[in-house]
């Protein structure tokens, strides 16, 4: 699969789920390239913003679209790496406040089953 095919795949996926692909094409290109390279290396399209741990169960959660993205988009307006956004006006290239980081961590812990 090449970058354009992958873009189309994720674009359709996002539309089906009610969100969109990040309108910043340059960022999306970079993320897609990263995923394709990781696919070549690990045979799975792991999220470029996650560490591949070598633990099959943990790593399964970070194959794009990852286990966290739906809740992330719902609560933060975007997924962690910035591939998907809730709407066109979501600012992706921004730094997070400590409070926002806490919220991210809470989402990850929820999905990992560490908190309810």
């Amino acid at each position: 699969m090449n970058r354009e095919q992958l873009r189309e795949l994720y674009k359709r996926y996002a539309e089906r789920k009610g969100f969109i692909l990040n309108p910043d094409k340059k960022t999306v290109d970079m993320l897609l390239d990263g995923m394709l390279l990781r696919e070549k290396k690990y045979r799975r399209r792991y999220c470029p913003c996650r560490v591949v741990s070598g633990n099959r169960e943990t790593d399964r959660k970070v194959i794009c679209p990852c286990a966290y993205h739906l809740l992330e988009i719902e609560e933060m307006g975007r997924c962690w790496c910035g591939l998907f956004v809730k709407s066109i006006d979501v600012m992706v290239k921004k730094v997070f406040t400590p409070e926002e980081m806490e919220k991210w961590e809470e989402i990850w812990a929820k999905i990992d089953g560490k908190i309810k």
Binding site: M30, L31, P48, C49
Partner: peptide, 13 residues
């Protein structure tokens, strides 16, 4: 800084 080349938040930092 633990980072990766394709990670947009990493590049921001």
């Amino acid at each position: 800084d633990f980072w990766a080349e394709w990670c947009m938040p990493c590049l921001m930092m």
